[in-house]
Design a protein around this nucleic acid. Structure first.
Length: 307
DNA sequence: ATTTGTGTTGAA
DNA sequence: TCAACACAAATG
């Protein structure tokens, strides 16, 4: 203790390579000085420090912190300078790049100084990825990545009261044991929570959304030929979230306009919002309506219910 | 030998 | 949450 005090007192002022006793602190958030004149970047989460690597330039380290901040805390996070913007093509692709990678992956890239390169590669590989959309307000927004579409069949809106999830996407995105029934919470854009049951019907060898679907269809006016679009995202704690988007058939758009078309921002980029897969599905209008929070599903707490 | 990154503390 | 500080682990 005394030794520390003495050392601090005796080293007034600053330090550089000459005087490594006291380091000049950084003017940037998330940046700490290193004894050799380099700069470290770090971010805190859940009482823990996450080290983002060391860098030659102070501002370089600050930029690294910015990227991490936006991945860890959402896109409204305070940064040193860079604020990714969804309405800017560059920002949009970077946002989806961030969303497509786990925090661990992003941290690895930052620490290895490979983030820029991997981002470039991603852009080259997928230049105009239309398979993303944004949900949320200006403070907090999440990127959703397109998963798959399901065109609603007559039986999906019939008396069976269930929606069939095609086998391939079901097994890829919503794997389930054949005996399980999984409660899944859906949340719409207004914060309303819907609870559905997801299960596998052995009799017809199909994956289905059952309980809750009927009310959903009724309330939203879903009919044969409409398209249900599935999207996924991760929130700040890396929990998967899912969104369902309803695309009404063009022929009946004027007849049945869902409640929230106008709620959902024309400040967002419509081209980007409804990408390749949507147009393929012959949908010309849509509105993000439902956010499905599937913590239960993804935490593996597959509550079995037999009744 | 040098650099990176952690243990720890106290302030905000 | 955040950075300052000491110093240990990792790296060349």
């Amino acid at each position: 203790m005394n030794a520390n005090l003495q050392r601090q007192e005796s080293s007034e002022g600053f330090a550089s390579k000459e005087n490594p006793c006291k380091l000049k602190s950084s003017r940037y958030k998330g940046v700490v000085p290193q004894h050799n004149g380099r700069w470290g970047a770090q971010i805190y989460e859940c009482h823990r420090r996450i080290w983002l690597g060391t860098f030659a330039g102070e501002s370089e380290a600050a930029g690294v912190y910015d990227i991490a901040a936006q991945r860890f805390r959402g896109f409204g996070a305070t940064t040193n300078f860079k604020k990714l913007c969804k309405s800017d093509p560059e920002g949009a692709t970077e946002l989806s790049f961030l969303a497509a990678h786990s925090k661990e992956e992003i941290v690895r890239m930052l620490r290895h100084h490979t983030y820029d390169e991997e981002l470039r590669n991603s852009r080259r590989k997928n230049p105009l990825s239309g398979n993303t959309c944004w949900m949320g307000n200006s403070n907090r927004s999440h990127v959703f990545e397109f998963l798959f579409n399901k065109t609603v069949t007559p039986s999906d809106v019939g008396k069976l009261n269930r929606l069939v999830i095609p086998k391939q996407p079901a097994e890829k995105h919503f794997p389930i044991n054949k005996d399980d029934k999984i409660p899944i919470n859906f949340q719409d854009g207004n914060g309303k929570v819907w609870r559905f049951t997801y299960s596998y019907w052995g009799s017809s060898q199909s994956y289905v959304i059952t309980k809750g679907w009927r009310l959903f269809v009724k309330e939203k006016g879903i009919r044969e030929g409409d398209v249900v679009s599935f999207w996924s995202s991760s929130d700040c704690s890396d929990l998967k979230q899912y969104m369902i988007d309803i695309f009404h058939r063009p022929s009946r758009i004027d007849r049945c306009v869902p409640t929230s078309i106008e709620d959902h921002n024309h400040d967002q980029v419509p081209v980007r919002l409804f990408g390749v897969d949507i147009s393929r599905a012959e949908a010309t209008s849509s509105s993000p309506q439902f956010t499905m929070n599937s913590r239960i599903y993804n935490n593996g707490h597959l509550e079995k219910k037999s009744h």
